[in-house]
Simulated assay, not measured.
Amino acid sequence: MSDLSDLRREYTAGGLSEAELPDTPWPLFERWMQQTCDAKLTDPTAMVVASVDERGQPFQRIVLLKRFDAQGFIFYTNLGSRKAAHLAANPRISLLFPWHALDRQVAVCGQVEQLSNTEVLKYFVTRPRDSQIAAWVSKQSSRISARQVLESKFMEIKQKFSKGEVPLPSFWGGYRIVPETIEFWQGGEHRLHDRFLYSKAMEGEDLWQIERLAP
């Protein structure tokens, strides 16, 4: 077995103080997201999405955040996927934004609500054409015999929709994660990290309690 116990570094990118915290988490998240984009990190909108199956087994995968506002965080996916099946049975979800290069993490816990067809279509028409076609090709999470199956299907669908717009698949949709807690983690020297937890104080209202957590 490989021993990784000596792999460590100091976190010196900077701290996070109470004085910097807004009353709601959204301005801070927006600032951190902008700084992540400005730093030109690879896939700055990538987030780990965790769901739980009927046996209580957690699953995680990387998904791209497409929009956020005071109502929540939005991503899109195949509604026949494993994650969609999990969320249909159990709408509770968690997100993690792992911005290691800036010594930062943001962890979100809450519940999902499925987006309307109107909201999904509004985003779908902005996707590159090949991405629209790819949405038709993959029965996400299902077993396939070879990559050639996907490539052949892609060419078939591309030919089918060679003229005109690519329609929105009925099995493709999106989710809004309505957060109950949002935790901001900023690495600190000597493992004395700064952690602040925003907890929703009242359902339906943008009121939050803020607590500092031990690192």
Score class of each variant (00 low, 15 high):
residue 14 G to M: 00
residue 116 S to E: 06
residue 151 E to T: 14
residue 28 L to G: 01
residue 199 S to F: 00
residue 14 G to A: 01
residue 154 F to R: 08
residue 66 K to N: 09
residue 142 S to I: 00
residue 4 L to C: 02
residue 122 K to P: 00
residue 88 A to S: 15
residue 43 D to F: 03
residue 18 E to C: 00
residue 122 K to W: 00
residue 104 R to C: 01
residue 68 F to L: 11
residue 127 R to A: 01
residue 42 T to R: 12
residue 36 T to F: 03
residue 110 G to D: 05
residue 50 A to D: 03
residue 77 T to W: 04
residue 86 H to S: 08
residue 74 I to L: 10
residue 212 R to N: 03
residue 147 R to Q: 12
residue 32 W to V: 08
residue 55 R to H: 15
residue 55 R to L: 12
residue 58 P to H: 09
residue 47 M to N: 06
residue 79 L to A: 12
residue 49 V to K: 01
residue 191 R to V: 05
residue 36 T to D: 08
residue 15 G to V: 14
residue 9 R to C: 01
residue 53 D to K: 09
residue 13 A to T: 08
residue 31 R to K: 09
residue 164 G to Y: 13
residue 111 Q to K: 13
residue 3 D to H: 05
residue 75 F to N: 09
residue 180 E to C: 06
residue 6 D to N: 14
residue 130 D to Q: 14
residue 75 F to Q: 12
residue 25 P to L: 07
residue 46 A to Q: 07
residue 53 D to Y: 11
residue 196 F to H: 08
residue 183 E to I: 04
residue 182 I to E: 12
residue 35 Q to N: 05
residue 113 E to H: 04
residue 34 Q to P: 03
residue 60 Q to D: 07
residue 28 L to M: 08
residue 112 V to N: 01
residue 148 Q to I: 09
residue 176 R to I: 10
residue 159 Q to M: 06
residue 102 L to H: 03
residue 98 P to Y: 02
residue 38 D to K: 01
residue 81 S to R: 04
residue 106 V to W: 04
residue 125 V to T: 12
residue 86 H to D: 15
residue 147 R to L: 11
residue 127 R to S: 02
residue 19 A to Q: 14
residue 191 R to C: 07
residue 10 E to C: 02
residue 67 R to Y: 13
residue 109 C to N: 13
residue 129 R to S: 02
residue 112 V to P: 04
residue 122 K to G: 03
residue 190 H to P: 00
residue 137 V to K: 00
residue 33 M to Y: 03
residue 100 H to M: 03
residue 213 L to F: 04
residue 165 E to H: 10
residue 155 M to D: 15
residue 105 Q to D: 03
residue 162 S to L: 07
residue 184 F to A: 13
residue 16 L to V: 07
residue 104 R to I: 01
residue 22 P to T: 04
residue 126 T to D: 03
residue 139 K to Q: 15
residue 188 G to L: 07
residue 195 R to C: 07
residue 15 G to I: 13
residue 18 E to A: 11
residue 5 S to C: 00
residue 86 H to A: 11
residue 95 L to S: 10
residue 139 K to S: 12
residue 212 R to I: 08
residue 84 A to C: 09
residue 147 R to G: 13
residue 79 L to H: 09
residue 187 G to L: 07
residue 69 D to L: 02
residue 66 K to D: 06
residue 79 L to M: 15
residue 212 R to D: 07
residue 131 S to V: 02
residue 44 P to W: 06
residue 65 L to G: 05
residue 57 Q to R: 14
residue 31 R to E: 06
residue 143 R to M: 08
residue 112 V to T: 05
